[in-house]
C-alpha cells in the first residue's frame, strides 16, 4: 500500500482536527475494509487517523427506550448485546450473517456504515470504474454483473452496497451522529447513503472531514419481532445476493406496523418504502406480501447477469414476512 502518515488521537476533538483541511486523510477503524482497499491500491490516503483509541465504544440507553451505539463498538460486541438481541433482533442477525467471527471482532459500527462495494471492476485497476476513477466509465454495465444492484442504479454505476448491518439500520430508522470541527449533526440512516447518479464516487452524505461518532436506534417495540434473512452462494462467509430486514406487527389479520429493507439489490441499503406503504393497514398474507414486494421491485433496472435478483428478492421478502407472520421457520 501507499506509504502514509499514521496518527492515533486520544479524543474526538483531536481526531476531527487531524482530518480538518487534510483532503488526503482517512479515518481508520477496524481496518477490515480500508486496509484491504489500501493494499489493493483502491484507497490511497496520505494520512491515516486511527480512531480506535477514542472513547466511542459503549452502548447506552436513550431516553424513551432507544439505544445509542458508539461508532467504535465492534460488530461482534454488538451482536452479543442482550438489549440489541431482545429489542432489535434484526440488527443482531444482520451482523451475525455478515463476514466471519474474526472480521466481526475487528470491524466497527462506524466502519461498517462506510463499507465499500465488492464490485470486481471497482477492485481491478485494469477495469474502468467511475467509482474508483470518476469519469473512467463502468465495465460492469456490459460485463459480469451477477452480484450487482438492480435498484437505484445509474448509467455510471451499478455496484451493490455490501453491508448487512446497514440494511437492518435502514429498516430501524437509525440516526447517524457525526462530528467535525464545525460541530455535531445527525443524519437519518435512510438519507445517509447516496445513490450513484453521475457521482458514484460520493457514497454518503458524510463530508470528508466528518467522523461518525454514534448510531442511534429509536425505540421500536414492534422490532422485537424482526428478522434478517440473507441469501448467498454458500452457507456462510459470503456477501448477500439478496437480503431482507423486516419487522412486522399484525393485529386481527391486519398489518399495524411494518419495516422492510433490502440488501444485495440496491445501490445503497434499500428501505422498501413502497412495499411498506402497500402493506400497512392491509391484510397480512401471501397475496399482499407478494404485491408489496413486486411493487417495490417494479422499478428494477436489470442486466442479463442479475435479472434473477428480482425474482429472488420477491421470494425472499415474501418468505421473510411469512415467517414473521406465522412464527415459522426461524431456523
Amino acid at each position: 500500500m501507499k506509504p502514509f502518515a499514521y496518527v492515533k488521537p486520544a479524543d474526538v476533538a483531536g481526531a476531527v482536527r487531524a482530518v480538518s483541511g487534510e483532503p488526503g486523510a482517512k479515518f481508520l477503524g477496524g481496518g477490515t475494509n480500508l486496509v484491504d482497499l489500501m493494499r489493493e491500491g483502491v484507497e490511497r490516503p496520505d494520512t491515516v487517523v486511527d480512531v480506535t483509541g477514542l472513547p466511542l465504544d459503549t452502548i447506552d440507553e436513550l431516553p424513551g427506550g432507544g439505544l445509542r451505539i458508539g461508532a467504535l463498538v465492534r460488530n461482534g460486541t454488538l451482536t452479543a448485546d442482550e438489549r440489541v438481541r431482545a429489542r432489535y433482533p434484526v440488527l443482531s442477525q444482520a451482523l451475525l450473517a455478515g463476514a466471519s467471527a474474526q472480521l466481526r471482532n475487528m470491524a466497527t459500527v462506524g466502519g461498517n456504515l462506510l463499507q465499500r462495494t465488492r464490485c470486481p471492476y471497482f477492485y481491478d485497476h485494469a477495469a474502468a470504474c467511475n467509482k474508483r476513477e470518476p469519469g473512467g466509465g463502468c465495465d460492469a454495465l456490459g460485463g459480469l454483473n451477477r452480484s450487482h444492484a438492480v435498484l437505484g442504479v445509474s448509467g455510471s454505476c451499478i455496484a451493490a452496497h455490501p453491508s448487512d448491518m446497514c440494511v437492518a439500520l435502514a429498516a430501524l430508522d437509525a440516526v447517524i451522529e457525526v462530528e467535525s470541527v464545525r460541530g455535531t449533526r445527525r443524519i437519518p440512516m435512510t438519507g445517509f447513503h447516496r445513490l450513484p447518479g453521475d457521482t458514484p464516487e460520493i457514497e454518503t452524505e458524510l463530508a470528508p472531514d466528518e467522523l461518525v461518532t454514534a448510531v442511534e436506534l429509536p425505540s421500536a417495540p414492534f422490532a422485537a419481532r424482526s428478522r434478517y434473512r440473507k441469501v448467498r452462494d454458500r452457507a456462510s462467509y459470503a456477501f448477500a445476493l439478496v437480503s431482507v430486514a423486516a419487522a412486522l406487527e399484525v393485529r386481527d389479520g391486519a398489518v399495524t406496523a411494518v419495516r422492510l429493507a433490502l440488501g444485495g439489490v440496491g445501490a445503497k441499503p434499500w428501505r422498501a418504502h413502497e412495499a411498506e406503504r402497500i402493506l400497512l393497514g392491509g391484510p397480512a398474507g401471501e397475496e399482499s406480501f407478494t404485491r408489496a414486494a413486486e411493487a417495490e421491485l417494479a422499478g428494477a433496472d436489470v442486466r442479463p447477469g442479475n435479472a434473477f435478483k428480482v425474482h429472488l428478492a420477491r421470494a425472499t421478502v415474501v418468505a421473510t414476512l411469512r415467517e414473521l407472520n406465522t412464527g415459522e421457520g426461524t431456523a
Binding site: R118, P120, D124, G143, D233, A235, S236, Y237, A238, F239
Partner: peptide
Amino acid sequence: MNPSLAEYHVPVHA
C-alpha cells in the same frame, strides 16, 4: 474477475 477467496467460493465449514 474473481481472483480472490472472497469471490471464488470454495466450501466453508458451514
